[in-house]
Design a protein around this nucleic acid. Structure first.
Lengths: 247, 247
DNA sequence: CAGGTACTTTGACCGAGATCAAGTGGGAAC
DNA sequence: GTTCCCACTTGATCTCGGTCAAAGTACCTG
């Protein structure tokens, strides 16, 4: 259970998520103020950072890795309600307790701020509050997109939707286009995908096999995915293909 | 198609949603500034205020009635992704085009602001921006709550969840407790409920009949609902009953 | 009052996805 | 190498909710 520090930078200038995180619009002096209240934490894959109902005493940004927000019913049924990628924000200023479990889906590094000082900064630093509003509105859009997926799409469309989102995000990070073929590693287990999509892991597995059989995707091992034709995948996802990819 | 003005007030002091809307935290002078850019509009039940993809040239608050946000796939499958009650905010500052259809589910009165001036005010009026952030975070929570409903609950639990939410909101508006029996009118058609819950209208109808048969609810006519025991309904919804009702 | 329209209910049947139950494969520990 | 473990795959069967179809009900209009 030894946690090696996976991060090499300690100041914001070298921060890989600097341009997208809550602090994106901060001026030099604001950034310096933030530096005084920030600290890094690492988590191992599978760890729960925060339990639903817990006191939240920090907020922060995902620096690397993936975190997920999960809701669980008494009988054990679980639904993932958020997938937090690098630069995404964790925590809710102005609220005492966490409404969901927050888990490290992969090994994870977070840039944390103690909650109180951060809230105080928000009040005095419009750039932070404004950026947080933008990010929250984006998350709300993403959540509503998922409501369509959960409520109305078939299992096959759900899988295709998830793959297409991961592929597009990956392409945008690596700055490769999304016209030709896209290659990436699935950062989620079949079970995590099932929890995200409101399916069982068996159905996830079956549908991935079906997409492979129909040459919509290619698999090397269980996790390494190649999408030969993004347009085809988007069709399978039931999305409008007439241009205009969001994000 | 004559639209009678359903609102009687024109200044913010008498506004019924004054204490909950975006303008809730505004000082007198800020309110006066808002008054100069605001105007009221009425819509009839069924009307579409904004089509997905449209230019949005106003934002605003629901004063009375109910509006809904809807996403539609090419083949006609639709999913409601937001239910906007009085005081809820419509529109997204900083974005050009609407991501969803906005429809009047009942007759509707909106307090509108032209978008440009409103965005300018937001930049100069921290009370508005801050309130909007709060409201957006609340909506995000609500959206995530719905993701659990859509992804993991049974048809019966879905209906019970919807009824419980409407009942609790109604109780909070009328300031009646939620311990004894709760009485309200369903503001949605069976089809709208189906679109909200990711079901068909037949299933909605059947499950409502079943809840009636099992004495979880009582119906007078199609829309007038009595909940004899809120605790029982919450159990049927699969929610934690151990206290702590949100909102 | 007759007829129309919009909303709702109910029935019969079917199929996508859940459930239950074996397997398979690959990496790590011994 | 062998064993264990865990993530994953695949098969057989069942079931909840969807689909198709037919009535029923309330309200509005002429």
């Amino acid at each position: 259970m030894t946690l090696k520090p996976l991060y090499e930078h300690t100041n914001c200038d070298e921060c890989p998520i600097r341009h997208r995180a809550v602090c994106a619009h901060c001026e030099k002096d604001e950034l310096e103020a933030l530096e005084t209240i920030k600290y890094y934490r690492s988590f191992e894959a599978g760890q729960t950072l925060i339990w639903s109902g817990d006191q939240m005493n920090f907020v922060g940004s995902v620096v690397s890795g993936i975190a997920s927000l999960t809701q669980t019913m008494e009988d054990g049924r679980t639904q993932m309600v958020g997938l937090l990628l690098p630069s995404d924000f964790v925590g809710r200023p102005g609220r005492e307790t966490a409404p969901y479990d927050v888990q490290a889906t992969t090994d994870l590094v977070m840039c944390c701020f103690r909650k109180k000082p951060f809230e105080e900064m928000m009040a005095t630093t419009p750039h932070i509050a404004h950026r947080l509003l933008q990010m929250t509105l984006d998350e709300l859009d993403a959540a509503r997109e998922w409501m369509l997926v959960l409520g109305r799409k078939t299992a096959r469309e759900k899988i295709a939707s998830l793959l297409s989102i991961i592929a597009r995000r990956d392409a945008s990070v690596h700055k490769t286009g999304i016209t030709g073929q896209v290659v990436f590693d699935l950062p989620l287990t079949r079970e995590a995908m099932a929890d995200y999509l409101g399916l069982t892991l068996e159905t996830v597995s079956r549908q991935i096999s079906a997409l492979k059989r129909d040459a919509v995707i290619t698999l090397e091992g269980k996790r390494h995915v190649t999408i030969p034709d993004m347009g085809r995948l988007m069709e399978e996802a039931g999305d409008d293909t007439d241009g205009g990819f969001l994000v």
